[in-house]
Structure formats: structure tokens, C-alpha cells
Simulated scan of single mutants.
Amino acid sequence: MMDLHCHVDLYPDHDKVLKDIDSSGIYVLSVTTVPSAFRGTVALTNKLNNCRTALGLHPQLAHQRYNELSLFDSLCDGTRYIGEIGLDGSKGYAEHMEVQQVVFEHILNKCCEFNDKILTVHSLNAVDKVLELLSVYPKAGRPILHWFLATKKQVDRAVELRCYFSIGPAMLHSARAKKIISWLPKDRVLLETDGPFAKVKGKILFPSDVIEVVNYLSMQWNTSADAVQYQLKINLKTLLT
């Protein structure tokens, strides 16, 4: 199994999340929110063979940290994984959309210099613009749309753009999110937690909690949990190769 969107460095108890990753054996992508956090997060998880660190600049921080783009550029060849990146059109952030777009396009353009990047992308209340920019920069890498809330038409467009979709336990507590999950092609589904920000019944999610999604997909797909895990394994392998 995997957790392809987890803010390992932002857990209040690092020892607890690192132990969870180690003991579960789950493949974890530790995303960062600013380039200046990248090296420290790599150091935090460097003893874990099943954890990789992504280089990111979160859209909610773009207007404050756009001056870190040069640092992003200097670090970009040090990891295959890029995230968290994207756009956020929700209240309090829509007013900064112009600088968010400058930052997102800069990152996508930089990633076009490589041929193997995996992108974990935030698109809250900005789905159409995110998809438009991913279509403009098709060589930037393979996008994983994190916690994707969209219309059926937008899902279909994302599939056309060869996107993957990471879904987490917190999404299972939303009727809207479950409807969207039902639209996703089985061969594009991956798992995430978005811990420690995402919670279920007030409890912070840890990577091992992705089993809840496996059990849900088992019911939705009318197959065994083992079959779901096998499909997810194939999806991850295809993404990475």
C-alpha cells in the first residue's frame, strides 16, 4: 500500500509518524509546503527505506514564499517527486491567485527540463485552471490530483490528461467526495492521508490508516481487499515506470 500525500514534517509527534511508516511498511511520499523545508524533511526520514520526500511550494503559501523559487530550482534535480504544488481558489487565497499561478507555472516549466517527475497537485476551488495549466505543460511530469473535488466533466478531462487521483480516509466521510471516487477509473486510483491536516472524528490520520480506503474500495468495486491492494500496487508501479 501507499500514502502518496503525507506531511511527515508537520506532525506534532515525529517519532510517532516515523514509527507508523516503519512498522507498516507502507510506501510514503512525504510532501513539503516550502522549498526551505525540503532538506530538513529528507534528513528526518533518511533512515526509512519506504519513504521519499517531495519538493513543494504550497499554493496557500505562494504569496508569502514566492522568493523561494530560486531555491526550488536549485533543489529540483535532487528528487523525482514534486509537491505539494497547485492552485487554491478558496476564501482567503483567491485574492492571491495571480502570484499562485506565477509560482505554479514556474514550477511546471522547471519540471519540463526533466523527464521523470511525479507531481502531487492541489486544486481546491481551482480545478479548471489547474487542468488548463497541466495541459499547457504536458512534459512537466505525471500529475496526481490530491483530494480531487470536481464535476464529472472535470474528472473526465483529468483522465484525458493522464492524471492519477489520490484518495484518503477523510474523503469517505463526504457524500460529494464518495460520488467523485465512484467516477474514477480503477487504474488511476492511489491512496493518501494528507496527515496531519486531515482527520477523522478528530483523530489525526497516519499512513497506516489508508487501509480504511482499501476496505471501502473493496465494497465499491465488489472485490476482495487483496484484489484492491493488487490493483493499487499495479497503479503505483505504472506511475513510477
Score class of each variant (00 low, 15 high):
227 A>K: 14
53 T>N: 02
59 P>T: 03
29 L>R: 04
1 M>A: 15
96 H>Q: 08
184 L>V: 05
194 D>Q: 07
26 I>Q: 08
93 Y>F: 15
64 Q>I: 12
74 S>C: 11
149 L>H: 09
61 L>I: 03
32 T>D: 03
203 K>Q: 15
115 N>C: 11
120 T>V: 15
6 C>R: 08
230 Y>L: 10
139 K>P: 00
194 D>W: 02
60 Q>K: 07
133 L>R: 15
223 T>Y: 01
16 K>D: 00
82 I>P: 12
12 P>M: 06
206 F>K: 07
199 K>F: 02
234 I>M: 14
49 N>S: 15
111 C>D: 08
104 F>N: 10
239 L>G: 04
223 T>Q: 13
148 F>R: 00
100 Q>H: 10
128 D>E: 11
205 L>R: 10
238 T>F: 11
58 H>M: 09
184 L>T: 01
149 L>Q: 05
155 V>W: 04
105 E>T: 13
40 G>C: 01
200 V>K: 06
30 S>R: 06
218 S>W: 03
161 L>M: 05
201 K>R: 14
238 T>S: 13
203 K>P: 00
121 V>N: 11
237 K>G: 10
143 P>R: 02
135 S>H: 06
26 I>H: 14
181 I>D: 03
176 R>A: 09
114 F>N: 02
120 T>D: 15
113 E>Y: 10
236 L>P: 00
64 Q>T: 13
157 R>V: 07
85 I>P: 10
241 T>V: 13
170 A>H: 05
231 Q>G: 01
47 K>I: 00
18 L>M: 09
180 I>Q: 10
3 D>C: 10
43 A>H: 11
53 T>K: 02
149 L>S: 12
51 C>P: 03
2 M>Q: 15
223 T>I: 15
43 A>C: 04
109 N>V: 00
174 S>R: 08
200 V>T: 09
14 H>G: 04
230 Y>V: 07
98 E>S: 15
83 G>E: 03
204 I>N: 10
77 D>T: 05
110 K>Y: 00
41 T>S: 09
16 K>N: 01
98 E>H: 14
126 A>C: 07
89 G>D: 08
173 H>F: 12
108 L>Q: 10
43 A>P: 00
37 A>F: 11
72 F>Y: 13
178 K>V: 12
11 Y>D: 13
71 L>E: 14
230 Y>C: 01
126 A>W: 04
220 Q>W: 03
160 E>P: 04
187 D>K: 09
83 G>T: 05
163 C>I: 01
150 A>Q: 05
118 I>K: 04
180 I>P: 14
18 L>P: 07
3 D>Y: 07
188 R>Y: 04
